[in-house]
């Protein structure tokens, strides 16, 4: 930024803008009627209030006169500065204005949703609210600590389990801190505990017979799935708050986007090819996710 401020081009631009503006000031307005600055009664009341909040008393008439004079001075500089386009290349002002515009768009979004809006949102985004798939299963675990004997052990246990029911395998294999019996665990919990690939296999394995072994970061797992629930879509009443939250967020994002696209549509944007160096940097930064 410091560098930018020292940038000759910027100085040139400011100077140019200033000259252009001065020209406008000294030549242009002569032919026009002077602009009007109105300090409204509401504005004066506002100045009084602000003063009172700081000083805990009403301003004296002299002070009020000063406040009004200062307000007028603000206004004059504001208008003239804008006419000189001093705001144009000022990054702070640009950001503030962008924020105000975005606030403006977000404000439009802040409304109470109706049930039918929420029902529609729920129907359109079932994946966000679906009660998760869950599974009940037992496992026979073979720790990777077994090392060289692991392959042979797998054969042996696979043979022993081939005709066994869910409870019969229970004494085989190794212990695992997670336990050997799992009752109605959600898919996300299985992913957290065992990893994604194991969860994938578990949720697609046959039920009511010993399956596997499936690999995890801990070792190999034979599993006996006794029950699997596919989840399902809850009624709005059960998830109303969550739907309302997501609806509001989606609307906020959507409105911002729409608002921007509508405004953007008024412009014909020409982007000149950036230097190659910049592209490489953008790529490096993009790699972090």
């Amino acid at each position: 930024m410091m560098r930018l401020l020292r940038e000759p081009l910027l100085h040139f631009l400011i100077l140019g803008a200033a000259l252009f503006g001065l020209n406008a000031v000294f030549v242009g307005p002569e032919t026009k009627v002077p602009q009007k600055i109105v300090v409204s009664a509401a504005q004066i009341a506002n100045l009084e209030q602000t003063f009172a909040r700081t000083w805990q008393r009403q301003p004296a008439p002299e002070e009020l006169k000063g406040l009004v004079e200062d307000y007028v001075r603000d206004e004059v500089y504001y208008r003239e500065g804008k006419a000189l386009e001093l705001d144009r290349d000022d990054i702070v002002i640009r950001r503030r204005i962008r924020q105000k515009m975005e606030f403006f768009a977000e404000d439009i979004a802040a409304a109470e949703p109706t049930d039918s809006e929420l029902n529609a949102y729920l129907a359109a985004h079932p994946e966000q609210f679906r009660m998760e798939q869950s599974v009940s299963f037992r496992q026979v675990f073979l720790s990777s600590k077994r090392g060289e004997t692991l392959d042979a052990d797998v054969q042996e246990i696979a043979a022993a389990l081939s005709h066994a029911n869910g409870t019969e395998g229970a004494s085989l294999g190794d212990g695992l801190l997670l336990g050997s019996e799992f009752n109605a665990v959600r898919r996300s919990e299985v992913v957290n505990d065992f990893g994604e690939s194991f969860a994938e296999e578990l949720f697609s394995s046959d039920t009511n017979s010993w399956q596997g072994p499936f690999a995890s970061a801990f070792g190999l797992h034979f599993v006996f799935v006794s029950e699997r629930s596919e989840g399902g879509l809850p009624k709005l009443a059960a998830v109303r708050e969550a739907v309302a939250r997501e609806w509001a967020n989606a609307r906020r994002v959507e409105n911002l986007d729409e608002f921007y696209r509508a405004l953007r549509g008024r412009y014909d944007v020409v982007v000149e090819t950036p230097p190659a160096k910049r592209e490489a940097r953008a790529e490096a930064a993009g790699a972090v996710q």
Binding site: M1, Q99, E106, E241
Partner: peptide, 18 residues
């Protein structure tokens, strides 16, 4: 310098869960 940045806080209050 970019500290003109901030986030919306105003819209929170109107969505209290019951």
């Amino acid at each position: 310098l970019l500290s003109g940045c901030f986030v919306a806080t105003a819209a929170w209050a109107d969505q209290l869960p019951t």
